[in-house]
Design a protein around this nucleic acid. Structure first.
Lengths: 359, 359
DNA sequence: CTGAAAGCGCTTACAG
DNA sequence: CTGAAAGCGCTTACAG
């Protein structure tokens, strides 16, 4: 046997060490201590305990100290339900999302979590709400548990929202169709993104750009397609505007490109409405032996991890930022210092990579 | 201009239709209706309303009907906080996760959500808890809001858990090091997975298998590495056991493989501790012009989406199933009908693809 | 099968 | 600055 590599038990590989506990040590493991217990121990009224708990100013320094000490020795944690019942505030926000995949989901939630924990809110999450009824149910189920909601449910009308949410409770929409003036709506600037990409393709000398559109029911797909048509007409009225209707999947795109090739129609660029379709196109082109970007440039939209891995030119959407902004806006509304609700567009960035680089 | 593709506004592309509202129509938009209001309208006591609300048997059919009608006309939804305060049950579970990426996160949460909504529990989610302190804080912050928790925090000791959780409140661990007999612990069967893969590589005639290990602090990485060594010794004691210490990243793996190639050492298979490293290895081998799987077989672990896209042999972990099982177990504990806590291993499946197929 | 009443653990005017 | 007391909206023995 040759060198045995790094096998064997490495004594340094202690997975965790439980020594330096930095928590208070004199606690009694009694999680059911109530505010009354604290008051009794501190020889004060519950009102005073409540005051220090809530950081009210009008408390004597000594009182505060006694309360804090009592809380510590009892390991007191206020009961959130009781607090919520008293204040009519839960300090939680509801998040209702559809069945998002991979990075979209994780990045969105990551951004939301950052903003939420910064503002001291908890997140009540509910996912998988493909249709309107289920989204409404999910939202209704949160009533009384949340102070507001972030809703990503393109199928929901403002009217639906009004029904599902407690009256007057704020909500921020993400990628929703409607602007009703009531709810802030955060969306992708598809037009801006498409314009950047079309301009890039034209600048690199492409004359026959084919757009692979996404699912016809999808808001972004529709906007991207329309924006493609408009931009082409505006920037290069002499060129043909070619669109193939796809379904956002790589396999669907493969079929489309195969058909396109079979038809003998000429093209020197494919701009897909999302990265998966662009990758499907790429696969077919490479299999056939068409050089990319030599003969045909390929571009997508989203900048999923696969895109950078396979060096695909695309439009990057900062998804975590999206989630962060949504929560920040909601928190502002909860604090009553939000500007009027509008449709807010987040513009993606052009990421130029090998599949369009003319070099 | 040639055929214009499918541009233009398609009138069928109505994004949503808001007509067939299936909700009750006679509701008054008064979300602050309380159980007392319902009782008053139904001319009954709040106790009766509460009984039908909770589906208790001892209610006259007519009474039930009157209550339901009143609830409907008032658009009544019970206040969760009040309920929770009374019953000492929140019907929510806390989920504390580290900074997981992409599919891991989304699939895990998806599985949890499925199980949770099936059991009528809400999910209070908190992520990004890299270190012990933050995980403890996140968990503590949930006190009084949850009935139990799912915790994925390898750094947390059973003692930490006991501190952060309310006394006696159940928790299920995911991928945690300890078994304390108190908490159920769900983990990947790394040994089983590695054995399957090593057997597969040996069966396809590989003699010099190099294992790219993962981050040394990672539980799974350690187990996989150890399992690789053990399995090799057990199944093929005459063969060399070669391990290179990597870091779970593709770029890290690229460096390792480049060094390996430069060293002139012979090898005919690379078994990486995760897919990203396998893909990094693949990239280098292909760039150099080494045929895969002809000269060198490559295999990973995890079955991330990239793996199927790039036809990589790997071990598939059903992550959503993982999340689902964790919640189901927790719910069972909450219902007091869970078998004793154990260390439960979920075995991954071998997915044979082009990078090892000898055909 | 139904109702009056106590209690869950907090917060917050209201007096002092 | 502090305390006694009412109230948040439910549930649940306890009588009837």
């Amino acid at each position: 046997m040759k060198k045995a590599g790094a096998c064997g038990n490495d004594p340094d590989t202690q997975l965790s060490s439980y020594f330096h506990l930095s928590w208070s040590t004199n606690r009694v493991a009694n999680s059911s201590a109530t505010i009354r217990d604290v008051a009794k121990l501190a020889e004060l009224s519950v009102a005073s305990v409540s005051r220090v708990l809530n950081g009210h100013g009008n408390v004597h320094a000594d009182t505060r100290k006694r309360v804090l000490k009592a809380m510590d020795t009892l390991g007191y944690v206020p009961n959130a339900a009781a607090r919520s019942l008293s204040t009519a505030r839960s300090h939680a926000i509801g998040i209702v999302l559809p069945d998002l995949h991979g990075e979209f989901f994780s990045e969105l939630v990551r951004g939301m979590d950052m903003a939420a924990s910064d503002a001291n809110y908890m997140m009540l999450l509910s996912t998988m709400h493909a249709d309107r009824e289920r989204a409404i149910q999910a939202l209704s189920a949160m009533r009384g548990r949340i102070d507001g909601a972030i809703v990503m449910a393109p199928q929901l009308s403002p009217e639906d929202l009004r029904r599902a949410l407690p009256a007057g409770s704020p909500a921020v929409l993400v990628n929703s169709p409607e602007e009703d003036g009531q709810h802030h709506n955060l969306r992708i600037d598809n037009r801006g993104g498409v314009t950047l990409m079309v301009r890039h393709l034209l600048a690199s000398g492409r004359k026959r750009i084919v757009h692979l559109a996404g699912v016809a029911e999808n808001l972004d797909a529709v906007e991207r397609k329309q924006a493609f048509c408009d931009t082409m007409k505006a920037l290069a009225p002499e060129l043909p505007v070619r669109v193939l209707d796809g379904d956002f999947t790589d396999t669907g795109a493969e079929l489309l490109v195969q058909q396109l090739l079979a038809s003998g129609e000429e093209f020197d660029a494919i701009f897909a409405a999302n990265d998966m379709m662009a990758l499907g196109a790429l696969k077919v082109l490479r299999t056939i032996g068409i050089s990319v970007p030599g003969q045909v440039a390929v571009a997508g939209f989203d900048d999923i991890p696969l895109a950078s891995f396979l060096d695909l030119t695309t439009m990057r959407i900062e998804i975590s930022d999206f989630g962060k902004r949504a929560v920040e806006r909601l928190v502002a509304e909860l604090s009553n210092d939000a500007p009027p609700a509008t449709l807010e567009r987040v513009t993606p960035t052009l990421i130029t990579r090998a599949t369009t680089a003319s070099g």
